[in-house]
């Protein structure tokens, strides 16, 4: 290694910043020394160590949210070069420069790249994305799940509530109350579970209200954007089928 040589290769980043939830966003450009195998998080850490813009002006360090650093927690989701994805798996070597970082615009910005994804957790509560097993006595073992079913249900369970599908959806915006693809897919997951199935109707009914499944306009961006490859459009269509059945069941009093 040529240790004596000064590092000449640099990385340029253009970051959309915002000081407060209600203040105006602005952009700042940074140029940081290149190291092999960097990801967007390590680039942000570099800026944190030396918060100086490319014109030499010092600034406050850029804030971001991250946790697991292996694309399973969903915390570091942001728009990287215009596409929503996780910063931890966005490798600098594979990105076009300058690297443009923006917060996801579907969610309220807390500061800089940190957004509040609370609406997603609210959505999970609304659709009751859990299996109620608590009782005052031992309910015994639940029914068995077929292995073939478990295999596709496992794919749905990979959802990390990262918000990328909501960001990609043209129908999740301030003009609608659409719940978004993630929660719909979770309804399919919990309705597929042999014990969860016992509360199937409740979850479907929630999706047959304002802001429910009808908000889907079939743009199918969600399935293309999902970092975990979850078949979101298949989930939506399957739940469309179940809600349609539920609709007729209710009308016919079955």
């Amino acid at each position: 290694m040529a240790v004596t040589e000064a590092p000449t290769k640099t990385i340029k980043l253009v970051i959309t910043r915002q000081d407060k939830p209600d203040s105006k966003p602005y952009t700042e450009t940074f140029e940081i020394p290149y190291r092999p195998n960097m990801n967007v998080i390590s680039a942000l850490m570099e800026i944190q160590r030396n918060p100086v813009q490319n014109d030499g002006q010092s600034t406050s360090p850029v804030c971001w949210d991250s946790n697991c650093l292996e694309e399973v927690c969903g915390a570091c989701s942001m728009n990287i070069n215009g596409k929503p994805r996780q910063a931890c798996t966005a490798l600098v070597d594979k990105l076009e420069q300058p690297i443009r970082l923006e917060p996801m615009k579907t969610f309220p910005v807390v500061r800089d790249l940190v957004v509040n994804r609370e609406r997603m957790f609210g959505a999970l509560k609304r659709v009751k994305a859990w299996i109620p097993i608590d009782g005052t006595y031992d309910l015994g073992p639940g029914p068995r799940m077929a292995e073939t079913k478990r295999q596709w249900a496992y794919e749905l369970s990979k959802c990390m509530t990262c918000g990328v599908c909501l960001e990609a959806c043209p129908n999740v915006n301030e003009k609608t109350s659409f719940i978004g693809p993630a929660a719909i897919s979770q309804v399919r997951l919990f309705n597929a579970h042999p014990t969860g199935e016992m509360n199937k109707d409740e979850r479907l009914e929630t999706l047959m209200e304002d802001g429910g499944i009808e908000g889907c306009g079939n743009s199918q961006n969600c399935v293309r954007a999902c970092p975990k490859g979850i078949p979101l459009t298949t989930s939506i269509a399957a739940i469309n089928k179940d809600t349609t059945k539920q609709l007729f069941k209710k009308w016919l009093g079955m």
Binding site: A168, N173, N218, S219
Partner: peptide
């Protein structure tokens, strides 16, 4: 139509084109 935010610039996929 008024309720949808078209985002073809960001996601120029075939089905998104059909959506818009």
């Amino acid at each position: 139509a008024y309720q949808s935010n078209n985002n073809l610039g960001q996601f120029s996929y075939g089905r998104n084109w059909a959506f818009t």
